[in-house]
Design a protein around this nucleic acid. Structure first.
Lengths: 230, 230
DNA sequence: TGAAAGCTTAACAATCGCTTGACGGCCCCT
DNA sequence: AGGGGCCGTCAAGCGATTGTTAAGCTTTCA
């Protein structure tokens, strides 16, 4: 993670710098607002740690200019010794994403930095994967062997469940619960849906991934032949 | 903004509820973890305020389950009376986005809630691009294949949202939320707007970028693949 | 104040997906 | 080996969701 720290107190800056670098981050440091702004604009950071009380331009101004003039959306964690409500509100108002009052534990700083970063990059959605079959819930896409597969809503739900619980046998009742909730159909429609699902994801590819466990339920797994107990 | 409070202390819950409702937010409250989880899963909130010390399932568990089991990405603000570092780190580790120690000023709570929400909807300042389609929010310009396209305000908003979330399926409710806020039209006007939008950005260009995911919502993506069946 | 633009609403058509019931096969138990 | 039950498959009917269009109303702007 690339982190910029804008802080005039050399001791504090150094301790943060060292601590975060130790943890594998790539650090830059600026001792005042102007330098900080310059760094922030010319480089790409994942998080900016910004002291409120800076010589020259203060932290609030730096943050505002970052947002308004430079259109930099990098998360900003505001640091300050002044623990007044007014200060905090101003901090947030200037476009800061978090606010930490000195003195603080470096662990907490690291935790907050991590959260700021993670939230930004939560985009890359984890896709479920079993063998050459992939299911991405966010994109609502299913791919096997590079070929996109179109699925009905219910078939998609069933596959998502089975892949999330891959290798585990999911009882029929549990599937019905997830798919229909409290209003399951009168007939045993699940059979039909599983059949359709098989036609879509297994039949065209030879090697079956969706397996029936008679009397219990279904399981998605890539197996040559593995004991079928739990 | 839709906000959920999960807090067992009735006094605290009530004061937060009233304060935020006063400020124009639509509030729900749950007195325990199970109820809270149920609310969070069945409704769509912008922010969840979560007390750490709950009867039954505690806040950490609620948060973990939200993230891991229910795949709910809603920002969580953790609330607690216990001000130890270990607590905070555990809080963040369970997937919380912010952490506030009691007692706190309601103004600060509101500020942090606002930041959590805003950060989610902060758009990249550069132009959005998908395939040969470009949307520049600052200039309010849409271009495809070098041709400028005129869009109505609502169509523009929808396209901006879908392109910002490109590749991801955006649920209908989420689109309606962004476009109309708390006052959606009585009828399903979204259908009409999407239709208009398609006429503007897709129909004249052959290759469609705006796709329907039946029963879920819409997605803007450049798909090479074709439904691989007959 | 007039004209234009945009939004909502409603109606209709078409498509899609879900359910249902029937039938046949396979497994397991007796 | 026989029978019952569980499971896979298929086709058809029905209901629901979506796309499309046009008309009326409100707002905006000159």
């Amino acid at each position: 993670m690339r982190i910029l720290i804008i802080e005039d107190n050399a001791d504090i800056a150094a301790s943060i710098y060292d601590y975060l670098e130790e943890r594998g981050h790539s650090m830059d440091a600026a001792p005042d607002g102007v330098t900080g702004l310059h760094f922030a604009v010319t480089n790409d950071y994942d998080v900016i740690i910004l002291d409120l009380g800076l010589p020259g331009i203060d932290g609030l101004d730096v943050c505002r200019r970052l947002r308004k003039d430079a259109h930099v959306g990098t998360p900003v964690l505001m640091l300050t010794a002044r623990d007044t409500l007014k200060n905090k509100l101003e901090g947030f108002d200037s476009g800061a994403d978090d606010y930490l009052v000195k003195p603080f534990a470096l662990e907490e700083l690291a935790a907050r930095v991590k959260v700021l970063h993670d939230r930004r990059h939560r985009r890359p959605t984890e896709a479920l994967q079993v063998a050459d079959l992939t299911l991405d819930e966010a994109q609502h896409r299913v791919v096997r062997s590079g070929k996109a597969i179109a699925l009905n809503p219910i078939a998609f739900k069933i596959l998502a469940l089975l892949m999330a619980e891959s290798d585990r046998v999911v009882p029929r009742t549990e599937i019905e619960d997830v798919v229909w909730g409290d209003n399951p159909p009168d007939s045993d429609a699940l059979r039909t849906h599983v059949s359709n699902l098989r036609n879509a994801i297994d039949k065209p590819f030879g090697r079956p991934l969706l397996h029936t466990i008679r009397g219990v339920g279904y399981r998605v797994a890539d197996l040559d032949d593995i004991p079928a107990d739990a």
